[in-house]
């Protein structure tokens, strides 16, 4: 009883700190005046229509979604075999490989972006492939930051999976590929769903690394928002943020219905 009170006493300020900016930004989006100030002069929905009619936001949103979907798909395709290998086999360099795959998680986005940019410059100089500012270069960078999440989440899922069920499948006549498709993949579905979601969100919201990799005319949503802020400070940005928060929140809630997120993360 007293333990629960204590827990709440600690959780409440934490939760407030986490939620306060979200609440304020969401409120700001409905202010009617152009210069954000308290108290609001009135409330309106005009900033939402402004956000939707701003072409840069719409195209940024589409590009971000496209890049996020593509790099999550590629990241998963790479991570599934890697996570299985790390989980199942004992081989030389296993620990090192595991660390390398999680590395992008701890490298600051600016450093990662700069390193990739320098690499692209050097690679383009030697191979003549158009890498700098290319779509492919951008996707490669995003795949890199998606992989650690996939490896981590799939790893948790795999370690919770009974190896016996794969042997049972083979005993019943399933060849390795069938066993993988019919038994292993469905078995780690929670991990797959969580990895896709987190991969998508991480890629979608990335700004620092992306700044180094976009070419002229390409702007992802975070970049479009930043560019807008350089010239204007009005609640349009808040409205864009609210749309993002609602979409991501909906995705999280939806996922939580299938996978208990507190169990996976």
């Amino acid at each position: 009883m007293s333990g629960r009170v204590l827990l709440r006493a600690f959780a409440a300020p934490g939760l407030t700190i986490v939620l306060l900016p979200i609440v304020l930004v969401s409120w700001l989006a409905f202010f009617s005046q152009e210069i954000p100030s308290f108290p609001p002069e009135g409330h309106s929905l005009r900033w939402f229509s402004a956000a939707f009619s701003e072409r840069k936001f719409a195209s940024g949103f589409l590009l971000s979604a496209e890049i996020a979907a593509l790099s999550t798909a590629i990241g998963l395709a790479v991570s599934i075999p890697a996570a299985i290998a790390l989980q199942r086999f004992r081989f030389r360099g296993r620990g090192t490989l595991g660390s390398i795959l999680l590395f992008p998680l701890v490298i600051p986005g600016v450093v990662l972006g700069a390193a990739l940019y320098i690499f692209e410059v050097q690679a383009e100089k030697t191979t003549d492939l158009p890498l700098i500012g290319s779509y492919a270069g951008l996707v490669i960078g995003h795949v890199l930051i998606v992989i650690p999440w996939c490896i981590k989440l799939l790893g948790v899922s795999l370690s919770g999976l009974d190896r016996g069920i794969e042997e049972a499948a083979m005993n019943l006549g399933a060849k390795p590929w069938t066993t993988f498709r019919r038994i292993l993949l469905p078995g780690i579905r929670p991990g797959l769903v969580a990895a896709s979601l987190f991969g998508f969100v991480v890629s979608f919201g990335n700004l620092e690394m992306t700044l180094f990799l976009v070419g002229p005319g390409q702007s992802t949503l975070p970049i479009a928002i930043m560019q807008y802020l350089e010239w204007k400070v009005d609640p349009t940005i808040a409205a864009v943020s609210v749309v993002q928060i609602v979409l991501i929140g909906a995705a999280l809630l939806l996922t939580d219905r299938y996978v208990s997120l507190s169990r996976v993360v």
Binding site: D162, G164, E167, A168, I183, P186
Partner: peptide, 9 residues
């Protein structure tokens, strides 16, 4: 199998 190894899904 000892722990039955039923397919959970």
């Amino acid at each position: 199998f000892q722990n039955y190894a039923l397919f959970p899904h």
